[in-house]
Design a protein around this nucleic acid. Structure first.
Length: 437
DNA sequence: TCGACTCACACGTTTGAAGGGT
DNA sequence: AACCCTTCAAACGTGTGAGTCG
């Protein structure tokens, strides 16, 4: 595990932990603000989107407070969710898979983070209403620390065990359909199931970087883009659902969470009670291995005669979450007339999505966009992300930009004036960060 | 010694290309 | 030629458990 102080010596000892910077936002509805500390909906992180907002109030500038840290996960009362800050009046978001999230939250949601990046499960799936059907929007997701504590599993529950690690570079995941019209977003639930979490501070793929054993809160942001290629943005709405709070781990600590994940996640089907990868079967395999080569009977067993069958999950479901894919073929943006603007804009993505998705061939940069996208032979390139890494602007993060590794260098688009060039949907926006604590 | 982390593994799911039929 | 459907293989996502590290 890398330590930011080793990676970024310039941080020095002044990179200290401490309470969030105080601030009050008079524009935030008191009913929502009361009792909450919105830990990190700080302007700098989204500043890149804000300067161009046309006559919109800076609703993101001052986070309302979050409730005090509960002693045990899952014991907090049901919040008035979603909590929202917005300059997009009338826009509302609802969490589609809320029941699943609540189930996990009642136990204490844990999310595995790995060096290579691990998907969130459950994923954030929301439905949105109140958008202008004609206007175009970007859907973004980021994850922010809930508090300044590090946690430890104490056999039965999570307990704070010291101060949090320093903040890592903030990254924002951009939904692959972005930008799309309000009608598109409202037509079907919007799923962020491709978001990946990593604990590698040098992650070259643009996954969201988290510390292990810390408590996090996903947030969803809607940004109205007045036009494609526009330098102006029509407003921002940010939402969070308190039941989506989780603790990042490198290995599951709470066995109940493991059970829930196995029961609910289709990819973990093999670990269910009747699966061939369940404990009983794995033990049997180990014994067979120790005894020698497989017998004919075991071969037949392995080739599909096993008593597998449907899952008899105690949670009463087979696949309890089947997340809807945002079907690219339905992307009306691909059918829309494309204005003649190049660079790493949304249109550039729509014209050459593969070029943005980690194609092994020449990758686009701001000024050098390949005419013919190269798509790799395998699927590995399909969703690896391009993302924009910004140098700290005036009053900005001051967090040093992680050095880019050679093979991915074209993905890292450095600096530049606001508003940002668009890094490509399905990609991540690295907006740097400033130490919050 | 212990807790956190990494890695290889086996298995199931997803995805997209290829091929055939209409 | 265009569309639809099925099949198939590779890539991907998953939790596990042994091993490693500090």
């Amino acid at each position: 595990m890398y330590h930011p102080r080793e990676l970024y010596p310039s941080l020095g000892t002044s990179y200290r932990l401490g309470p969030p910077q105080p601030g009050a936002d008079s524009t935030f509805p008191p009913a929502l603000a009361e009792g909450y500390r919105y830990s990190d909906l700080d302007a700098p992180k989204l500043d890149c989107f804000l300067p161009g907002i046309e006559a919109a109030p800076r609703t993101l500038a001052a986070p309302p407070p979050l409730p005090p840290l509960p002693p045990v996960l899952g014991t907090e009362p049901a919040p008035p969710a979603p909590e929202a800050l917005h300059s997009l009046p009338g826009v509302s978001l609802s969490l589609e898979n809320r029941e699943l999230w609540k189930e996990f939250n009642s136990v204490g949601t844990e999310m595995i983070i790995t060096k290579a990046g691990r998907r969130m499960f459950p994923a954030c799936r929301v439905s949105v209403t109140g958008l202008d059907p004609e206007a175009r929007y970007l859907f973004l997701l980021d994850v922010v620390p809930v508090d300044g504590a590090r946690y430890r599993w104490q056999g039965r529950r999570w307990e704070p065990s010291g101060k949090a690690e320093p903040r890592l570079p903030d990254r924002v995941y951009i939904h692959p359909d972005s930008p799309a019209t309000g009608a598109h977003w409202m037509r079907q639930p919007v799923s962020f199931h491709r978001v990946k979490l990593t604990n590698s501070t040098l992650d070259p793929h643009g996954h969201l970087i988290l510390h292990s054993m810390h408590k996090y809160q996903p947030r969803i942001h809607l940004v109205r883009a007045a036009q494609l290629c526009s330098q102006h943005w029509g407003g921002v709405a940010s939402f969070r659902f308190l039941e989506t709070t989780f603790i990042s781990v490198t290995a599951y600590q709470n066995p109940r969470i493991t059970q829930l994940k196995i029961a609910a996640n289709p990819f973990a089907k093999g670990f269910r009670e009747n699966g061939r990868n369940c404990k009983r079967e794995r033990d049997a395999r180990v014994k067979r291995k120790l005894r020698g080569p497989e017998t004919a009977a075991t071969k037949a067993y392995g080739s599909g005669d096993a008593p597998g069958g449907p899952c008899d999950s105690t949670l009463g479901g087979d696949v309890r979450e089947s997340e809807t894919e945002q079907v690219p073929a339905h992307r009306e943006a691909t059918l829309a007339p494309v204005p003649p603007c190049g660079g790493s804009s949304a249109e550039a993505y729509l014209l050459h999505p593969a070029a943005f998705h980690g194609a092994p061939g020449p990758l686009p940069t701001r000024t050098n966009f390949p005419e013919v996208p190269e798509s790799g032979p395998g699927r590995s390139a399909s969703y690896s992300a391009a993302f924009l890494e910004l140098q700290a602007g005036p009053g900005g993060s001051g967090y040093p930009v992680a050095p880019s590794t050679a093979p991915f260098a074209p993905h890292f688009l450095q600096g530049g004036p606001f508003p940002l060039s668009y890094p490509g949907p399905g990609g991540y926006l690295d907006v740097g960060s400033k130490p919050m604590y």
